Computed example of a mutant assay.
Amino acid sequence: MTEDFYDVLGVSKDATEDEIQQAYRKKATEYHPDVSDDPDAEEKFKKVKKAKEILTDDEKRSAYDQMGHERFEQAEKRGGFDGGAGGAGGGPFGGMGGGGGGFEDIFNQFFGGGGRGDQSRPRQGQDLRTALSLDLEEVYDGVEKQFTVTRPKTCADCDGAGHPPDADVETCSECNGQGQVTQVQQTPFGRMQQTTTCRRCGGEGRLYSDTCSTCGGDGQVRDEATLSVDVPAGIRDGQSLRMEGEGAPGPNGGPNGDLLIEVSVADHPDFDRDGDDLRYQHAISFPQAVFGDTVEVPTLDGSVDMDVPPGTQSGETFRLQGKGMPRLRRRGHGDLYVQVQVVTPSELNEEQREALEQFAEAGGEDVEVTEGFFERIKNSF
């Protein structure tokens, strides 16, 4: 049996809009693809988002409760009016009017427009996006970061109404104050009526003698705000953070949208990041490669000692467990992979030259290649 929208959010069928919004925020945080380890997180996140959109819309929720989940889903799938169902075929919604009204028009036509409901009721504001640049050290430790964003806010002079408080008001003559107009069309199934938002008054049902000089009638102005966000340790380049309620203001006093912050992590001069792992190249001398040594290797949490065994070849890689990046919202760290490069000296003093000549005379120019040597060198690059 298909899980209905109330079950998806974990709320009862008489839940208030605030309870639905609260449940949505909890579920969205749990299943957001950027932070969830659930392999089905993306699909679950889509279901949660859709459930919220339906159940916080009075018109759609009413239709959903009347039709039930299965019939509602079927009606939604048939919502495209111009998709290959013309004439008498294609099911009960096929061929109506020949134009593309979509899902919203189904409810406008069959369940009415609810007076001025669509335009005058409170609605959630739009989500906004911004970018935030970080360096690898900030990502390693996690950081509280301040940033500036330009976004719309409710006009203080008109309180979002778009007109002065003392403006003269009159009833819209085109919709008679209803905010919507109804058109009757002849279809193969008979006469059908379609309700749409009044273009003249924009759905308000009223006209005003003047517009607000500050916002030009939009009800919103541009504002520059300085915000602070907690960046969790281990976040990756391209992932996003969500700040609830920091988006655009909602029309007619509705709740604000959210602010989505896309993270950009700058390249590091020493380390290459590979998921939660780090890669680093470390130079060693010829004697260190031959005789072995303990070398000091930098990490993002301070330097550590690493043993280089005798006979190390250039290009060999050593793993330092737990010295990589923190795992996002999980315990532990990735690893640090250190590739050693044997440096051939370009200039020798007299003593060094004599020593190498003696080495060559003793057979140092003979090279014995073990099986798999070239394969390891190829893989190291």
Rank of each mutant, 00 (worst) to 15 (best):
L55E: 11
S133G: 15
F359E: 08
C175L: 07
D37I: 06
N108M: 12
L207K: 14
K13M: 11
H268E: 07
P92G: 04
Q313A: 15
D301C: 09
D168F: 09
F110W: 10
G205W: 06
K49D: 14
Y24L: 09
P188M: 04
D168V: 08
R327Y: 06
G292C: 01
P287F: 02
G177M: 10
Q341I: 00
N379M: 03
P39I: 04
D272L: 09
A225E: 15
P164G: 04
Y6A: 08
A75V: 14
R191N: 14
T214R: 09
E350F: 09
G311P: 09
E246L: 12
G179W: 03
R199E: 15
A23M: 08
T370F: 10
E347I: 05
Y24S: 04
D18Q: 09
T187M: 08
Q126K: 14
E170M: 07
T197E: 13
E262D: 11
T211I: 13
F374H: 03
P39S: 10
G142R: 07
T197L: 07
I54F: 01
M1Y: 01
F381N: 02
G162P: 01
I106S: 06
F72D: 12
T2F: 10
P249C: 07
R279C: 02
G216M: 02
S209W: 08
M306W: 01
D38W: 07
G101I: 00
G79C: 05
I54T: 06
G238F: 08
